[in-house]
């Protein structure tokens, strides 16, 4: 591997930044919308659901799927940028 320690450090830093930004969304939709603020969101109607209930029982799962796909794409780009892809 021809990766210098500085580049490896920079790659890892960007990796952490990507993970943290996606996990922030993950936290907000599940723990935020589905648990902590469910009562407040329930006053908003959403296609026949109360919005908080929808996030808790369905919405968060859809967002989780999207997050992993977006993460995999971002990481593939990052791997190529630092030339560490396989």
């Amino acid at each position: 591997m021809s990766l210098t320690p500085e580049k490896a450090q920079a790659y890892w830093k960007e990796n952490i930044r990507i993970i943290l930004s996606y996990l922030a969304v993950w936290f907000v939709v599940s723990y935020g919308c589905g648990i902590l603020f469910i009562e407040q969101l329930n006053s908003i109607p959403f296609f026949g659901f109360e919005l908080g209930f929808w996030f808790a029982q369905q919405g968060s799962i859809f967002v989780f799927c999207g997050l992993i796909i977006a993460y995999a794409i971002s990481m593939n780009k990052l791997d190529e940028k630092y030339d560490v892809h396989e």
Partner: peptide
Amino acid sequence: LMGWTGGYVM
């Protein structure tokens, strides 16, 4: 529902 799917994100 959230627990058994959200774990996959982590």
